[in-house]
């Protein structure tokens, strides 16, 4: 085994990656790291980086020890220890972790007027209003960046986890999966004062409409 390759530094767009050999024991690894950082002292001088370890699973104690060596040996200013798994650039991971299916989404800009109908098997984002008499039927989620005053059907192919979100939620009729909800007949109880963004979702066979906030999104 080439000693030099037991510890390696690699720069990426996210920061500095420290590649560690997983076969040698930890004490030897520390020794190599000490040597390597000492050699590269001038190179690291005063740099401010975020850093991650790769190639070897470390427990917290081990990670701390390695960081201690690096900070003792160099003048490297470590701003952030990041975990490659968490990287926000990694969209693949988000889709795996998400409870919602992340599928293809269509975008439509403009007003959906009375008599107009948009049908898609995917999710859809409407940038504009859905006027009374307008209809949107989507296999996935429906997000309306505007006022919803028409008819929407999310999860039309039977996806009960689909949701409908709108900046101003006043639908004539709202369907999710096979459940249908409609606006109350008594128009007086509809609060016209101030529209807040709301989200409609299905829970135990009932459609709930709630303001979009930290709590609601957490429950989804």
């Amino acid at each position: 085994m080439n000693d030099e390759n037991c510890v390696m530094f690699k720069g990426t767009k996210n920061g500095l990656v420290v590649l560690l050999n997983s076969e040698i024991d930890f004490d030897t690894l520390k020794k190599y790291l000490k040597k390597k950082t000492k050699d590269a002292k001038a190179f690291f001088k005063g740099a401010k980086v975020s850093l991650t370890f790769k190639g070897r699973t470390l427990n917290e104690e081990e990670q701390y020890e390695l960081l201690k060596i690096i900070s003792e040996q160099t003048e490297l200013n470590i701003s952030y220890i990041y975990d490659e798994e968490d990287s926000i650039n990694d969209t693949e991971n988000i889709s795996v972790n998400s409870k919602f299916r992340v599928d293809k989404t269509k975008y439509y800009k403009g007003t959906i007027r009375s008599g107009q109908c948009i049908k898609t098997e995917e999710s859809i984002v409407i940038i504009g209003d859905v006027n009374p008499g307008g209809e949107i039927i989507a296999g996935g989620n429906i997000i309306i960046l505007g006022a919803l005053k028409g008819i929407v059907h999310a999860g039309s192919i039977g996806d009960e986890k689909a949701f409908v979100a709108a900046l101003n939620m006043k639908p004539m009729q709202l369907r999710i999966g096979s459940i249908i909800a409609r606006a109350p007949d008594n128009k007086d109880i509809i609060d016209n004062s101030k529209a807040v963004p709301q989200i409609a979702y299905l829970h135990n066979g009932n459609i709930y409409i709630e303001p979009i906030d930290y709590k609601t999104l957490g429950n989804l």
Binding site: R113, S114, G115, N131, P132, G133
Partner: peptide
């Protein structure tokens, strides 16, 4: 207004 909305859609 509802009919006007429909008409605007057809005009577009």
């Amino acid at each position: 207004v509802r009919d006007a909305d429909r008409i605007i859609g057809l005009l577009e």
